[in-house]
Structure formats: structure tokens, C-alpha cells
């Protein structure tokens, strides 16, 4: 079923690692921000934690652009 073998995975590792690193960095900064602030423009803490953790890339971006509340 799966045509991507372990060899191929290894071949593309130099690409996958930076991508995963950036995704994790975004997720962690967003998660820290969600947990340290109480006010959101809408939604609550649980919603944002789920969104930020489960939706890679899109979740943190949506949080920082439209979900983040005022200081």
C-alpha cells in the first residue's frame, strides 16, 4: 500500500527535519501564548489549545492573527 519506503524517508530527512522544526516552533510559541493569556477575541482556552496543537501550521496562524486577545 505504502510506496514510500524507509530508504526514501531517509533520503528526504534533510527536508522533513526543518519542516517539522518550524511546525513545532510555531506550535510551541502559540501554545505558550494561549496558556499565559486569559483573554481571547473569541473561543476559550480549551478550544485554542486543541486548535493550536491539532492543526499544524494553520492553528497557530489563526490564533495569532484573529484569536489573540488584547494584553
Amino acid at each position: 500500500m505504502n510506496a514510500v519506503t524507509l530508504d526514501q524517508l531517509q533520503e528526504y530527512l534533510p527536508f522533513l527535519i526543518p519542516i517539522i522544526l518550524v511546525e513545532m516552533a510555531l506550535m510551541i510559541t502559540a501554545l505558550v501564548h494561549v496558556l499565559r493569556h486569559k483573554n481571547y477575541r473569541f473561543g476559550n482556552r480549551i478550544l485554542w489549545v486543541v486548535l493550536v496543537v491539532c492543526l499544524q501550521i494553520v492553528g497557530p496562524i489563526v490564533y495569532f492573527t484573529i484569536g489573540r486577545g488584547e494584553e
Binding site: 510506496a3 514510500v4 519542516i19 518550524v22 511546525e23 516552533a25 510555531l26 510559541t29 501550521i57 495569532f64
Partner: peptide
């Protein structure tokens, strides 16, 4: 401070990196 630079830079970095990779891998996928 509003994370605008972080978002835009990381999103564009990902686009720049994923595009050739995806093009290369699409037949295999």
C-alpha cells in the same frame, strides 16, 4: 511583539521548502 514577523517568516519558509519537495514526491504519493 505581535508575532507578525514570526508567522509570516515561518509560513513563507515552509512554502519555500515544501514546494520543490512536494513536486518531487507527488508521483510517489
Amino acid at each position: 511583539r505581535t508575532y507578525k514577523s514570526l508567522i509570516l517568516l515561518s509560513v513563507f519558509f515552509l512554502f519555500g521548502m515544501m514546494s520543490p519537495l512536494l513536486a518531487k514526491l507527488l508521483p510517489e504519493i
